[in-house]
Each structure stands twice: as structure tokens, then as C-alpha cells.
Design a protein around this nucleic acid. Structure first.
Lengths: 321, 321
DNA sequence: CCGACTACTGTTACCGCTAACACCCCTGCA
DNA sequence: TGCAGGGGTGTTAGCGGTAACAGTAGTCGG
């Protein structure tokens, strides 16, 4: 594999000039720059990351903490990873996956943390390297997330647009920001429409939502739509309605949240609010890398707009008026 | 962060001795060795991986190729990743995720490849660095996989043990080794029991298996068990049976394959054949690392025994006799 | 016309670690 | 006693980059 030196020789310049072309191209005359580019091309030059890391006192590694038990990990993490990996790749960073077992800190340039709960914020404070969270929070950490409020607002409004007159919210029973934001989205939308909120909160398991609907089915009149905080909950709701003989989407609607994998497992497939998870992963990566480059400067947060994916568990929107 | 030199100074030896203690402890007298260990301990020495990589002409990076479109990626890949990451961590290797978008080769010490199809073997041959496949193959590549034949044999036999008299196989319609092995497991078990095989082959999508059962339900007598090549297919089968009014598990049985996430989404939860995916990921990691250490020496293959997880979609085994 | 300044490019040293070799001392045998 | 051989340790050089500094032109104003 060609090195800086090889390129330098081929272009008849010093190694330093080649290095500059790579890192500070504006400091090199156009003429030399193009010579160097040509040489790099000819030799198919690939920088040696280890050498770069050593010289810069960096590791070129970003650690991803998944603070969740592995056997409960949701499918969308794969998409997150893919996006993250893309962003890191671009800057020749490697990803290191850290799970509950091997919680070792150190030996990296920055962290991405996901699945954190309130109890985790304590030790996050103690880490000095750049951190970006995947998931909203009010502790002042930089983060990337979906607009959770908007997402559920959207599904709630859509349910109303479809002509369902009774909108029930099936939320996640966690004292975490994302869960609260989603619930808030529901409450806000209902308030605007002068409708009566009806809220249930469960652990995020399909058989729990299924059991809930099973147990209370008689209390839900026809024309009810269940706005759910996750596809997982939605799938359980869908199943229970079907078992109880409810007709989807004619008499009952179901709307999920996430739009990754599980929505397609339902039958009919779930109407859902899709998060652009891979894109979000990519942005999270960009954000840590920026933060690393800028010596830990706060990056604020980036909030992505989720999109409604209308499918089989809701009937078509009714004409207005 | 303490360096080799710091440790050396503290232990009153040369850097080289410290390096030896780390890499070839047998070449250092016990006395010095313990001095060095003590010093490393005192200083909480962590080796600088970039420096090590540079000196050894290594990258300390293993790339994971997921040769599947990201939006079809199955949940169990997360577990694979977790196991892989563990193994790599132990040896201070970093993981680099490569997806269909960014198929760049190079800049690593070895590869793990998964989701490959026959068409992929061509270019795999061209890679000179150590490769280990996750998934069986007959092209002579080292690999880690579940014993697919045994797995489906197990589920087929179990179905018979439960007293189902008609055993139908719902397979994956791919000309790949794993798909064929699973089908073979079914055929073998059926032959042993002098039972008539009945095989369907579909793309691995729950709504396809669902449609299949819907369309042919009348042809399946009571006391039929569907042995499926994946949990995904099994979920569709389960749903169709329920819609058609079939009673699970009394009149119809369903057995899946994988045992990661999806099996728990079913209702009742799926009886399934569980692959120890995380462990397999770990072993895959160990195998590439070994192969790297041994300069590409073939490692053969490692086949894991999957386990039956009896749950709600099959009735209890009948007493023998 | 000369010094200072600007704008590039090259030289040097070093990041932390390891292979290869040099060295030392001790043992064992002639 | 002399010397080969070998185990144990230190020295040297280099892995492939980069920051910091040192040139070396050309430009401009006085």
C-alpha cells in the first residue's frame, strides 16, 4: 500500500506538502495540489489511519454505547448503526460497539450513547470526551432525535382526519423524555380538537398492549383509533382487535410509531410514523465528529421530522367538511 | 495516559522489556515480569492501539460486510454485532460496519461477511486478507453457522412428538446453502419417519406465508404442524391460521427458526429453534482474529447446535408409545 | 536598492510501540 | 582456562503521519 512518501516522491514534492494537500489544501498552490492529487490517484493512495491517529494523539475510534439489554434491543438499532457507520467511515473513524457487558470507557475520541435512562446521566457527566446522545434529553447533552411531539401530533390528527371519533393513546410507561414528548403530542392534538384524552401506559411489549385491549375491548366503541407510541405496542393492539372480531380499519384504526421493520410484520401492515433512523444515525455521527474536531464545543441538538406512512390499519382520510 | 516508557521508567527496565512482558511474557524472567505488572497496575497503563498498529503494520480493524439491503436486515444482526464486538474488544480490535452503500475494501486486517449470496463469492475470492463468513457455504470459506440440518430436523421431530400427524415445511426460496440445509433437515426427518414431505418455498416475508396459508387453508387437515425456515415465515403462518379460525396449538402447530426477537412478537409466542446468535458472533470474531494472528491459516468451520424453545404455538409433547 | 513581509515549501523531530540486532553474563565442555 | 552457546536485557531504527519551525522566493514601500 502506497504511503505519503510514495506519493511525495511521485509528485516530486515533500511528504509535508502531500500532508498539507490532504489536511489544509488551501495552503498549497493549485499547481502542486493537482500534481499531488494526480499522484495520489495513480498510486491509489489510502492514508494509514493508525499513523494519523498516532501523530494526532487520537484513536480514530468512536464508541457506541447501547445501554439496553441486548435481548430487548429493537430492530431499528441496525439502521442507526448503518447510518452512524457511514458518517464515521467518511472521516476514517472506526466504530466500537459497547454493550452492557463490556462497559469500558477510554481509548476513543468520542461517544454516542443511546437507550439511556435517567439513572445513566450521572456517570455520563463524568466522561470528558465528546458525547452525543441518540435520544432527546433535558440534561443539556447534545442530541439527535425525532420530533416526538410532532410525530404523535401527526398521527393523532391523521386519526381524526380519517374520521375516527374516539382517539385512544397507548403510551410507553417510562419517565423518559421521549415517552413524555410523545404523550404530550397526543395531549396537545386532542386539546386543539376539544377531544377527551384517554391514555394508557405500558411497558413496550406487544403482548402487554394485546392483553390490555383484550381486557377492555367492550369499552372501546366502534370508530376508535389507537394511537400508539411504538410499532411494537401497535402490533399487539392490532392483534387483539382482530381476535375480538373488530374490523380494521373500518371500525378500528391503529397507528404505530418507528416505521422500522415491525410495521411491515403486522397484517395488515401498520399505518405508522416513520423515523428516518438511518439518516439520524448519520447525523449523530457527523455531530460527534464535529464535536471532536471542535474540541468538545456544544453542538446543540438536531431534531428530525418523522413522516406519516398510511397503510392498512387506518381507513383513508375523509373529505374535509 | 501512561505510555510504555512511563511503565518502563517506573519498573526500572527498558521499554523493550515492558513490551515483551505484554507480548511474549515467557521471554522475561518472572522477577522483572512482576515488577512490570506492578508498574502497569500503578499507572493504570493502557496500550496505545494506534502505535501498536503502526509498529506491527496492522490496522487493528475488522470490517463487517452486511451484504443485504439495510431495510430488509433482520433483528438478529444486532446480536451478531454484539457478540462480534465483544470478541474484537478483547483483542483491542475495532469494528467497521460496511453496508451495501459503502463497499470499500482495504484498510483492515480481516473481514467478516454475512448475508452473502452465490453471486458474491466471486469477488470474495479476490480479497487477500483473512475472511470468515457468517453463514455456511460450500466454497471452502471458513465459516460459523448454526447446524441448519439439525435445527429443522429437531423441529420436525418435535412436531411429530407433539402428535401432529401432518408436517408441512415452509421454506425460504433461495438457492443458498442455509436454505437447502434447512429443507434437507426436514426431508431427512420425514424420511426416517416414513412420512410424506410437503414443501412450500417462499421469499422470507411474513405476508407471503400468510397469503399462502390463507389460500390453501382448506387443504390442511387438522393436526397439521407447519415447520418453518424462519420466525418471519412462522409469524405469517400463525396469523393466517388464526384468521381462518384454526386453533393453535390444538389443531395446528407452528414452529419457527431463529429465536431472536420476532419469536416473541407472535401471539401466542412462537415455538422456535433458537440460534445462539450472540455466541456465534463472538466465535466468528475469535475466528477472524485467530486467522489474522496465524497469517491466514484456514480455520475450518464452527457449527453451533440450535435449541428448541417450546412455547405457545405447539401443544405439549405426547407420552411415547 | 534594500529590508520587511507574505506566501509557500521543506526539514526536523516526535507520536508509542516493536522487530532486529547488539550486548552481557553465565554455563558447560574441551 | 578458553571459548561456544544461549538466555535475558538493552539499543537502534523505523512504522506513516503531522506540528513547529526553518528556509526561500517574490512583493512592496521607503
Amino acid at each position: 500500500m502506497a504511503t505519503l512518501g510514495d506519493v511525495a516522491a511521485k509528485a516530486h514534492v515533500s511528504k509535508m506538502t502531500v500532508s498539507r494537500v490532504i489536511n489544509h489544501p488551501e495552503k498549497v498552490t493549485r499547481e502542486l495540489r493537482e500534481l499531488v492529487y494526480a499522484a495520489m490517484n495513480d498510486l491509489n493512495y489510502q492514508p494509514n489511519i493508525a499513523a494519523k491517529a498516532l501523530a494526532n494523539n487520537r484513536t480514530q475510534i468512536v464508541k457506541l454505547f447501547i445501554l439496553e439489554k441486548m435481548d430487548t434491543v429493537e430492530p431499528y438499532y441496525m439502521n442507526l448503526l448503518a447510518g452512524l457507520a457511514d458518517a464515521l467511515d467518511e472521516k476514517n473513524y472506526a466504530l466500537q460497539l459497547v454493550t452492557k457487558n463490556s462497559l469500558e470507557v477510554g481509548n476513543c475520541d468520542g461517544y454516542v450513547v443511546t437507550g439511556m435512562r435517567n439513572k445513566d446521566y450521572g456517570w455520563l457527566e463524568t466522561v470528558e470526551k465528546p458525547i452525543v446522545l441518540y435520544g432527546e434529553n433535558q440534561m443539556g447533552f447534545d442530541y439527535v432525535d425525532t420530533d416526538n411531539v410532532l410525530g404523535i401530533k401527526t398521527s393523532t390528527n391523521y386519526a381524526l382526519t380519517c374520521g375516527y371519533t374516539n382517539i385512544v393513546y397507548i403510551g410507553i410507561n417510562l419517565p423518559e423524555a421521549f415517552a413524555q414528548s410523545r404523550e404530550q403530542g397526543y395531549t396537545l392534538a386532542m386539546t386543539v380538537h376539544h377531544a377527551q384524552p384517554q391514555i394508557y401506559r405500558l411497558d413496550n411489549r406487544s403482548h402487554l398492549s394485546e392483553a390490555l385491549i383484550d381486557a377492555h375491548f367492550s369499552e372501546f366503541p366502534k370508530n376508535t383509533c389507537f394511537v400508539c407510541a411504538s410499532d411494537r405496542l401497535a402490533i399487539g393492539v392490532e392483534r387483539a382487535i382482530q381476535r375480538q372480531g373488530g374490523r380494521i380499519p373500518d371500525d378500528y384504526g391503529v397507528i404505530g410509531f418507528d416505521g422500522v421493520f415491525l410495521d411491515r410484520i403486522g397484517s395488515p401492515q401498520l399505518t405508522t410514523i416513520r423515523q428516518p433512523v438511518q439518516k439520524m444515525g448519520y447525523e449523530t455521527g457527523r455531530m460527534v465528529l464535529n464535536k471532536i474536531e471542535e474540541n468538545g464545543l456544544p453542538q446543540g441538538h438536531e431534531v428530525f421530522v418523522p413522516t406519516l406512512v398510511p397503510r392498512g390499519t387506518t381507513r383513508p382520510p375523509q373529505a374535509q367538511g
